[in-house]
């Protein structure tokens, strides 16, 4: 038995070392979220879904605003599958913000879908889909290595991606998506159609949620204690915007009112046609940089 256990332990140690080495060196390729929950608590955060995950580049903010705020900023955005403002997110954000922060910068990406009630939500019983998703299913969001993440969310790991090295989540949390670099209009149109179909499906199954708007308000309240909070509605294509408009006509008015009540800024870029998307929703690398610069200008101005 001793021999058996020793050999088993040795094998386990070897494979653990291999996994930890890969995660340490290539986590940006292997998993889109591991780096975000294995970095230390932060002074500044970008919070949102894949729009801000790909479209807001922390390095641009760091170089433009480092004198005004406690930076660097971490892009703590996930995807629309995981992100909706609610208690679970407030809990996670509280863990991710360094407690002594007083002059941080917190950019909250908002749009109708992250403030909606989904078909899996059970509002009456206080059960929400995002509780089971990373990072909200974790007790620890600042530990390296994050063993808890590995065990709970191993399906997000794609070790073969470190060989292909196509897309990477940088240490600052920004997702550099390189698989979409094409100018072929048919391909781009195809990708946009996928998004239109997806959001059309959402609009039929989901409903706008006063509850989640309230939770956004609570998120702002917490973050305001640690610095400046801005709300951003990121640009999308005309087709996607029209879909969002028909789904939630007064969205901008409601968020503007909330921002006013909370004394925070709301920047609505939803209909800016200065940017190029690869699928109508996500900004490509070049336009992400341009957008982040404009966002920095807006933040500096107010």
């Amino acid at each position: 038995m001793k021999k058996f256990l020793l050999k088993l332990a040795l094998f386990s140690v070897i494979i653990s070392i291999i996994i930890l080495y890969i995660l340490n060196k290539y986590s940006g390729y292997v998993d889109y979220f591991y780096g975000k929950v294995s970095s230390p608590a932060q002074t500044s955060l970008i919070i949102g879904d894949s729009r801000s995950l790909q479209g807001i580049q922390p390095s641009v903010i760091d170089s433009a605003l480092s004198k005004k705020y406690e930076l660097p900023i971490l892009n703590f955005s996930f995807t629309v599958k995981q992100m909706s403002y609610g208690d679970a997110w407030i809990k996670t954000i509280k863990k991710k913000v360094r407690p002594e922060t007083k002059n941080g910068l917190f950019i909250l990406s908002v749009h109708p879908w992250v403030l909606s009630e989904r078909e899996e939500d059970d509002v009456l019983n206080g059960k929400f889909y995002e509780e089971k998703m990373p990072p909200n299913n974790l007790h620890f969001v600042n530990t390296n290595p994050n063993i808890e993440y590995f065990f709970k969310n191993y399906e997000y790991f794609h070790f073969k991606s470190m060989i292909k090295k196509i897309s990477i989540v940088h240490e600052d949390g920004w997702l550099e998506e390189n698989s979409t670099a094409t100018s072929d209009s048919a391909t781009l149109r195809g990708w946009e159609n996928i998004q239109i179909n997806l959001y059309t499906k959402f609009s039929k199954k989901w409903k706008k949620s006063i509850f989640r708007v309230k939770k956004l308000s609570e998120t702002i309240d917490f973050l305001k204690q640690h610095g400046k909070v801005v709300l951003v509605r990121m640009p999308v294509s005309k087709e996607i915007f029209d879909l969002e408009l028909s789904y939630w006509r007064d969205f901008n008015q409601e968020i503007t009112k909330l921002a006013k009540d909370k004394s925070v800024e709301y920047y609505d870029f939803s209909l800016s046609d200065d940017f190029g998307f690869y699928d109508g929703v996500h900004l490509n690398k070049k336009n992400g940089k341009k957008f982040t610069s404009i966002l920095c200008d807006s933040i500096s101005k107010y």
Partner: peptide, 15 residues
Amino acid sequence: RWGIYLFVFLMLLFF
């Protein structure tokens, strides 16, 4: 033998 075990494990991990 151990090389083979690791090979199979890496196949699991990567593929």
